[in-house]
Design a protein around this nucleic acid. Structure first.
Ligand SMILES: [Zn+2]
Ligand SMILES: [Zn+2]
Ligand SMILES: [Zn+2]
Ligand SMILES: [Zn+2]
Lengths: 167, 167
DNA sequence: GATGGGACGTTATAATGTTACAAAAAAGTC
DNA sequence: GACTTTTTTGTAACATTATAACGTCCCATC
């Protein structure tokens, strides 16, 4: 079960857009999702989610920790990791293993693995869908007798803006 | 440039096989490759490569460090990481970001990104090819104006043996 | 208003990876 | 061979990322 084929929002990380609106929408969506599933979006969990969305690029656990403590909090690593675990578990964020950082999920309802384009220059990342790709992968794995449970797919390279800057 | 389409050896990690023969062949191949490219496969680099191949599953940097020091060495982390960097740079090993571990490459001549099936139970991993998959991915990225430089694809799940054991 | 499970605070520690600089070894040059 | 230059290794300290253990608090339910 890699991904359901519901429509996903258009990815826009690499485009100019009102990121504050993204965050507000994401928080709102998270609240609804937690209400629906009877989960507790506690103050810290919401704060972590908000900080992740406020960042225009994937953010590390200790950067989050610093931000929280700048804002008057007095958190320790376990606090952050517990919040991150909760958000991960319920699909509200993704973890990018190749850069040890976290990013908000653009469609938390889906229950999916994320796939990401990550710019090595500006460090922004964008979640993308891989419609046929997922099934191809499934077949490839099944041919080996391997039962897929989850997949990480992280593409590193240059986003359009950074390509232009390079030239 | 994700991958050239030369023939790759049949993956056998999850099958019963003479792993010692794998290692000997891999070391031999590494020596040839380094000779051809005028690279220096120093004692430590060869030892690290050999230890990686001796392990029947991906192995972490600090486990390698411990093994080397068990064998009479007196290495510190930088020693290991430098050897790993060399081996990575020249495609002799791969790094599995999702488990922070290293694994020997089954076809170091190719200059490719690896894709891996990783069993969450027995922790063995197997490198696989993704012939059409790579090009699909390229197209997907290009549609976003993204210039791909490298890709990590790591599939987690259960290998055939562990599936049977489960049942 | 007891009580039980989940969430959080706190301290310490584990695991992974890097910087900086000195010494040694190897390779190139005459 | 003696010199210089480059590459590799040794060593100590440090940085980053993540977890363990245990006690306390909150709060929903009974
Ligand atoms: Zn997502
Ligand atoms: Zn960029
Ligand atoms: Zn390989
Ligand atoms: Zn297995």
């Amino acid at each position: 079960m890699l991904q359901k084929s519901l429509p996903m929002p258009t990815p826009i990380s690499f485009s100019v857009h009102d990121h504050r609106a993204c965050m507000i929408q994401a928080i709102d969506q998270a609240k609804q999702l937690c209400a629906k599933r009877k989960l507790r979006l506690t103050a810290i969990r919401q704060q972590v989610l908000q900080l992740i969305w406020q960042s225009h690029k994937p953010i590390g656990a200790y950067d989050l920790l610093a931000l929280i403590n700048q804002q008057g909090g007095k958190a320790a690593p376990p606090t952050i990791y517990r919040a991150l675990d909760f958000l991960l578990e319920h699909g509200l964020i993704h973890r990018l293993a190749s850069v040890n950082a976290f990013i908000g999920c653009i469609c938390p309802e889906h229950g999916h693995q994320g796939s990401f384009l990550i710019c090595r220059q500006c460090h922004r990342a964008q979640e993308v869908t891989h419609p046929t790709l997922t099934s191809k992968l499934q077949k490839l794995a099944q041919a080996q007798g391997f039962a897929v449970e989850s997949t990480i797919l992280e593409v590193s390279g240059l986003c359009q803006a950074c390509q232009r800057e390079q030239a």
